[in-house]
């Protein structure tokens, strides 16, 4: 065990870690930040996505030691400073972009990264970008809708427009 520190959601924190401790485990068990979820072992589901130095990564597929001193943002760090939901989080609620809530943290973290890279993504771009985040509840329709709405786009014709 070694003491490992990093900056999580703007605060420098530390906890014990082994070489084999995954970033997801460090966040969940080491720091008690249980908003980051683990839904698979093979890096596919994306429930564990967090930002490391501003970029989305799958925290169950990163060794905690490898992110020593990095800046990490988790779902717990995504709300506005006053605790209110961010525009993106609010759009997920407004458009029913979540059901059981388990994939939601990773989905929000990935969607936030998308909007950082591409402020007004098309439906196809959103669907493609979110390919590494599996949701079993929503059928993705309302997730796509939420991300489009968060970027200020009209969502009234989603699914309706003829091909």
């Amino acid at each position: 065990m070694t003491r490992l520190s990093m900056k999580v959601n703007g605060r420098t924190v530390s906890a014990e870690a082994e070489g084999r401790t995954l970033l997801s485990a460090f966040l969940r068990q080491g720091l008690g930040l249980t908003g980051t979820h683990v839904g698979c072992d093979t890096g596919q589901c994306g429930a564990c996505v967090v930002h490391v130095d501003g970029k989305p990564v799958k925290s169950c597929n990163v060794l905690a030691m490898d992110t020593a001193d990095a800046e990490v943002t988790t779902i717990e760090g995504m709300a506005n400073a006053d605790g209110s939901l961010s525009v993106l989080q609010q759009a997920f609620q407004d458009h029913h972009g979540l059901q059981c809530g388990f994939c939601t943290p990773g989905m929000v973290m990935s969607a936030a990264a998308l909007l950082e890279e591409n402020p007004t993504p098309s439906e196809a771009e959103i669907r493609h970008y979110l390919e590494g985040n599996i949701c079993r509840c929503t059928g993705y329709h309302n997730i796509v809708k939420a991300v489009m709405a968060a970027s200020g786009q009209d969502v009234s014709q989603l699914g309706v427009a003829a091909e």
């Binding site: 890096g43 994306g46 996505v49 490391v52 970029k55 989305p56 990564v57 799958k58 597929n61 990163v62 990935s110 990264a113 998308l114 970008y129 390919e131 590494g132 985040n133």
Partner: peptide, 9 residues
Amino acid sequence: IGDPAVRNR
């Protein structure tokens, strides 16, 4: 390759 999060690592 992979997805955006995988491509970052």
